[in-house]
């Protein structure tokens, strides 16, 4: 199965299960589960924004992503719910983070942006205690929403696991999710590979291969997809053998419905004869979205091969092809 094939099948699953992303009454309820309402909708929007940007309008994926974006925007009542959310939870950052996904796809609500800016001017907003990775996301959300970012990006980057260039053998799941999101924020979700500072890009080119290999080995499909998206977001991609191997292994985890389970445990629970729709929505929606995201960035790469940041690194291409590995920065 080709990379594009994995992505198409995964987006088919998303389309067929789009009702799972719909906002129910609990989206606004005080005791509603944000992680089951706003979070999936925001992630759907993020991924579809990326797909629509990196596929040509003639591409079937582009049309489907656009339709899903319209669907998602409708769920927010064309942005009206963000203002309502703010009146209910004025200091929560997630509404702005979700809104920023829409804004990056061109769906905007000026009234909400104006009221979000009022809260973002407070010291309390700037000092919200969050993981450094998440802070970086809030900065990017501010930027996308017409709000002056509350801190410089390099300062926020410094506080993250990835920003400190840690020993790569200290990687584990939580560090992995933190680092993928740092790259997503720095590159505007794969759109701007140049957002990755060169030292960080070298570091990632060195160590993505063993992280990918071991995540795939541990059947951590969701994180593997995110790492593949990171690989496709760098100024210079890892050597082809690394990506080919990873995509081949990931494809084995994809169900015929197009769903990619989050982890091997979901596969074990489903068993070998699980039927046409083997995974619960919560067990596969995120990893399936990430498969779409990673595949669209990966297949878009050759189409953008003439980008400046790529051209200036072509002298390294021969090095990468020399061995079945060792595609290291010079």
């Amino acid at each position: 199965m080709s990379v594009a094939g994995v992505g198409e099948a995964a987006l088919d699953w998303v389309w067929a299960h789009r009702d799972g992303f719909a906002l129910g009454d609990d989206a606004l309820a005080a005791d509603g589960q944000v992680n089951r309402t706003w979070k999936p909708l925001g992630e759907l929007t993020r991924v579809c924004a990326s797909v629509s940007l990196c596929t040509p309008p003639t591409d079937a994926l582009h049309a489907r992503a656009s339709d899903l974006l319209d669907f998602a925007w409708q769920q927010t009542h064309r942005g009206e719910l963000f203002g309502l959310m703010q009146s209910l939870e004025p200091f929560a950052t997630y509404p702005l983070e979700v809104y920023a996904a829409f804004a990056s796809a061109g769906f905007r609500h000026p009234g909400y942006e104006a009221s979000a800016a009022v809260v973002a001017r407070t010291r309390g907003w700037r000092l919200t205690e969050q993981y450094p990775t998440r802070r970086l996301g809030v900065l990017e959300a501010e930027r996308h929403s017409g709000i002056q970012p509350h801190a410089p990006v390099p300062q926020a980057l410094e506080g993250t696991w990835l920003g400190g260039l840690p020993e790569p053998w200290t990687f584990e799941r939580s560090a992995g999710y933190a680092l993928t999101h740092v790259v997503f924020h720095l590159t505007d979700w794969g759109r701007a590979p140049r957002g990755v500072p060169s030292g960080l890009a070298d570091y990632l080119l060195h160590w993505l291969p063993p992280w990918l290999d071991t995540c795939l080995d541990a059947r951590m499909w969701d994180l593997s997809c995110e790492l593949l998206a990171v690989a496709a977001s760098l100024p210079r991609p890892p050597e082809p053998s690394v990506l080919d191997d990873a995509w081949r292994r990931l494809a084995t985890a994809q169900d015929s419905s197009g769903a990619v389970p989050e982890e091997g445990s979901a596969q074990d629970a489903a068993g070998p004869d699980a039927g046409p729709d083997p995974y619960a929505f919560t067990d596969c929606y995120h990893s399936t979205l990430m498969a779409v995201f990673a595949a669209s960035l990966t297949t878009a790469r050759p189409r953008h091969a003439d980008r400046a940041e790529h051209a200036e690194h072509t002298e390294h291409a021969d090095d990468a092809a020399q061995h079945a590995g060792q595609g290291a920065p010079g």
């Binding site: 584990e172 799941r173 939580s174 071991t214 080995d217 541990a218």
Partner: peptide, 9 residues
């Protein structure tokens, strides 16, 4: 076989 166990939260 690899042995994988991540820190718990």
């Amino acid at each position: 076989d690899g042995v994988f166990r991540d820190s718990r939260e």
